[in-house]
Design a protein around this nucleic acid. Structure first.
Lengths: 342, 342
DNA sequence: CGACGTCATGGTAGCGCTACCATTTTATGC
DNA sequence: GCATAAAATGGTAGCGCTACCATGACGTCG
């Protein structure tokens, strides 16, 4: 005697209910929903009506199991509160909001191990695409990405050897440009101040160093860094340290805008004239920089656009036409402001 | 003739592979993984060995389909870049990182309709719990939450009629407290400046109004708001508007810290003395507020803690022991700083 | 006009896992 | 020592959907 199991699902309509109501086979409903072109106009309408009447929504879990492919984008970022990544993620969400794809967001906390763990978790889900921040994956992570069997986009940076695709810009060039600008503006004892020295920060520092060396101005004592996470408070403290170490400092390239704002406030507090006595350059160009008094020169980066573009590339790859440009450099722009207008 | 389908899954080991290797039934593997206590020590070890050797990871989709319950927390926030929600979300992620639960994050863009749409999408996934920002769901959303068949936590605010559970604080009281502080400090022509007047902002405004009326200081012309999203830039602009409209302004309660910073910078630029000529109070107490010059008085809120607590409550409910306190008020704290030290 | 392709639709058999029940083994009580 | 409960394990039948193949209805062409 076959007893139908008491509907575990809590009574949600299934594709079979829709099929029965529309008087067609379940498969045809499935097709009408996924490839409308392959079902005749008549049936499509009938099925749509049944769907609407029953309020049918396909079960994504069943779908993923049957098709061995989940309609999910896996996204890995090192931080959720860092505004930079928040904007990348926002770009990703906005680009995906009209698609059937959901987003599985992972926070790696700037840890390679954590990234590996999350990739391990994402794998069995068979995501439709993976978007990961940075280009410095551990060998294990890289292997996981290569064998994921879906498009992969590395974002925020560009580099020579993409797993699959890349969207970002050169942090080294950005750091160099910022530093060159200070040099051109007439500053000479230019410090570098950075917190949470992740790989991107390291490359910005390398850019700073290249520019300083080329100008014959490099001095390792001009560099002040800490592995502690970045904050405005920390910007102030590091600036104080830098100044104590090197009282003749006349400019600072800050690894990010939070640090720059901390430096600016400390200058106010200590009555240090900006840009006269000290020039300040930030990185990322948050909205605040143009409002600050004095307004702060910064390297504008296109975080939101990076998010959007990464999705566009992934979607193209899913659709079967991978862009021929596998590495997209969105560049940056130096925004000159009062803080370096000497 | 039965031909096994060419392994769609791309060769990942399944529970059957593990069972075969460990010489047990599939169901025992399943149990060993989910309820270790119900399997004998011996078998458990054997199974664990097989799992490790094969690198088996359960397929979450199959699991969700079979058990009619996905190990997913649905989280709905109005914004991903607003630092306030970013911290709530971070608290949620941190609390869930050691659990088997994944997170499905939705961005409602402050839209009730979008919230409904996302709940509609989350529903068929059968999430283990839902965490939603705010208490002003549309009737449709509320019904969706009530019939979701899982714990629901409304966060950021407290109110009288929870769908299920709540963690937050009273924005009205916060707004009132901020305003009372300005009054106590001797300010009289106190303005309210707010952008993106979402329900929480409305309640902070109501708190402002209550305090002003009680002190006999209320004047509608003191209020300057806009539906535009908040930013530092906007803070400056709104402050200019407010000042143009009401040149005798001697204090401002800013709906959030971004606005407050914009106001502060404009004061610098226009050489308006803070706190002497104008007193400033912000809301949320971001890190920057204590570093600003002058440092800015603000209402400290516990965003991260709200995220953590919401998860703790949901997990308790999932485990079957719903906390008897269904509404948790985490309160706030007035941080007195230089910007109101007249 | 019949062979052959094309299109629209359906049936069947799983995807990998767990709920439910059955069965076996081991402890417990008197 | 035997009945009975409890614990440990397994078999079977789906969960809701889609891949794969089969079928029938047309149209096309020599």
């Amino acid at each position: 005697m076959i007893k139908p199991r008491s509907r575990r699902g809590g009574g949600r309509p299934t594709i079979a209910d829709v099929a029965r109501r529309a008087g067609v086979g379940a498969i045809t409903v499935s097709r009408a929903l996924r490839e409308p072109g392959r079902v005749s106009e008549d049936l499509r309408r009938q099925i749509q009506a049944a769907v609407d009447e029953l309020g049918y929504v396909p079960d994504p879990n069943a779908r993923a199991l049957a098709s061995a492919r989940a309609e999910v984008f896996g996204v890995l970022v090192p931080s959720l509160t860092n505004n930079v990544f928040a904007e990348v993620v926002r770009g990703i969400y906005d680009s995906l909001s009209d698609s059937p794809f959901r987003i599985q967001l992972g926070n790696t906390h700037y840890s390679g191990l954590e990234e590996e763990r999350l990739l391990q978790v994402f794998g069995p889900q068979r995501p439709a695409a993976l978007i990961v921040a940075g280009i410095d994956q551990t060998p294990t992570s890289r292997k996981l990405l290569e064998t994921a069997g879906c498009p992969v986009v590395q974002v925020m940076e560009t580099g020579p050897d993409p797993v699959d695709m890349m969207v970002g810009f050169s942090h080294l060039d950005g750091g160099r440009r910022a530093t060159e600008h200070l040099i051109e503006a007439g500053y000479r004892r230019i410090g570098f101040i950075g917190a949470r020295m992740d790989p991107r920060s390291q490359r910005r520092l390398a850019g700073y160093r290249a520019a300083m060396e080329q100008a014959g101005l490099f001095d390792p004592r001009l560099i002040t860094t800490t592995p502690v996470p970045s904050s405005v408070t920390l910007g102030r403290e590091l600036f104080r340290d830098a100044l104590a170490k090197m009282p003749t400092l006349d400019g600072v390239f800050c690894n990010n805008d939070d640090i720059a704002v901390g430096v600016l406030f400390e200058c106010h507090r200590a009555a240090i004239a900006v840009p006269k006595t000290i020039g300040i350059v930030g990185f990322n160009d948050f909205d605040m920089m143009q409002v600050a008094f004095p307004s702060i020169t910064s390297i504008r980066t296109y975080r939101y656009e990076i998010g959007r573009r990464s999705v566009a590339m992934a979607l193209a790859a899913i659709a079967g036409n991978r862009p021929q440009e596998r590495v997209v450099d969105l560049g940056f722009e130096l925004m000159r402001r009062e803080s370096t207008a000497r």
